[in-house]
Simulated scan of single mutants.
Amino acid sequence: MNQVLASPRDIRQQALADARREHILSAARAVFIELGLEAVSMREIAKRAGYTAGAIYSYFASKEEIYGALLAESLERLNDFVNLAAEDSSVNQKRQTALEELRKSALAFYEFYRDNPRDLDLGFYLFQGLKPRGLTNEWDSALNARLRAAMKHQEAALMKLGCSKKEVDTELTAIFAHIVGVLLLNHTGRIRMFGKGADELITHYLDQLALRLPIKK
């Protein structure tokens, strides 16, 4: 079957639409971080982007959809960062142990958010109270899947170490909770009251985790 090639005009129009969409996302990212999801309106996002409110509805149906797109983009960059760390490890350490694989992938997850505080802000704005607000079940499921994908190297390492499925789920949850807790303390400056650094706490946790994990014979 012959494919219909896009005309130069169609290509230009698509490039322009993509550029406008990215401009809207950039403006929305700034206003979400400044004001929070609940306080932001489509009108405010349009104002920051230099468009009318009606204009941005041709790209996004709601502020929640804009937020979902921003968070999806952030999670893709997280996955890329973690995957790159895993690839570097396999090249530089061909005989890398499962413990080393676990440590490097967990550190990469932590370092991405440590070094990209705006992405951390976006992630935290997803939660108000204890439940995700403002996103459809479809968006929530898709975003959770991308977040879980960023932990696939940790999951694989735990399985190599001989953890059962239940143990893998427990350890992944604990690693995630610990990383998020340290990031929150560091991000808000509350960590200073303990006289410890974020990197120090993450390293300590992973050291202790390595000592108690079962090692597959």
Results as ranks from 00 to 15, higher is better:
residue 17 A to W: 03
residue 48 R to A: 06
residue 40 V to H: 09
residue 67 Y to E: 01
residue 30 A to L: 08
residue 41 S to A: 07
residue 87 E to R: 12
residue 211 L to A: 15
residue 25 L to W: 02
residue 211 L to G: 14
residue 78 L to F: 00
residue 74 S to G: 01
residue 84 L to F: 09
residue 24 I to D: 02
residue 157 A to V: 12
residue 138 E to Q: 11
residue 103 R to H: 07
residue 198 A to F: 09
residue 196 K to N: 02
residue 192 R to D: 08
residue 51 Y to S: 12
residue 180 V to A: 09
residue 43 R to W: 01
residue 112 F to D: 05
residue 189 G to A: 08
residue 47 K to T: 14
residue 50 G to V: 08
residue 131 K to T: 15
residue 37 L to V: 15
residue 6 A to Q: 12
residue 203 T to A: 13
residue 152 K to W: 05
residue 73 E to R: 11
residue 93 Q to S: 15
residue 6 A to N: 09
residue 129 G to H: 01
residue 122 L to R: 04
residue 164 S to G: 05
residue 213 L to M: 13
residue 149 A to I: 00
residue 123 G to H: 05
residue 205 Y to Q: 05
residue 10 D to I: 14
residue 22 E to Q: 15
residue 39 A to S: 14
residue 139 W to G: 08
residue 63 K to S: 04
residue 216 K to Y: 03
residue 55 A to D: 03
residue 134 G to V: 09
residue 183 L to G: 00
residue 174 A to R: 12
residue 124 F to P: 01
residue 64 E to W: 04
residue 138 E to P: 06
residue 40 V to T: 13
residue 186 N to G: 01
residue 88 D to R: 15
residue 193 M to N: 12
residue 207 D to T: 14
residue 74 S to P: 00
residue 123 G to M: 04
residue 149 A to S: 07
residue 41 S to G: 02
residue 15 A to Q: 14
residue 53 A to H: 12
residue 53 A to V: 11
residue 32 F to V: 04
residue 122 L to M: 08
residue 162 G to H: 07
residue 82 V to C: 02
residue 208 Q to H: 13
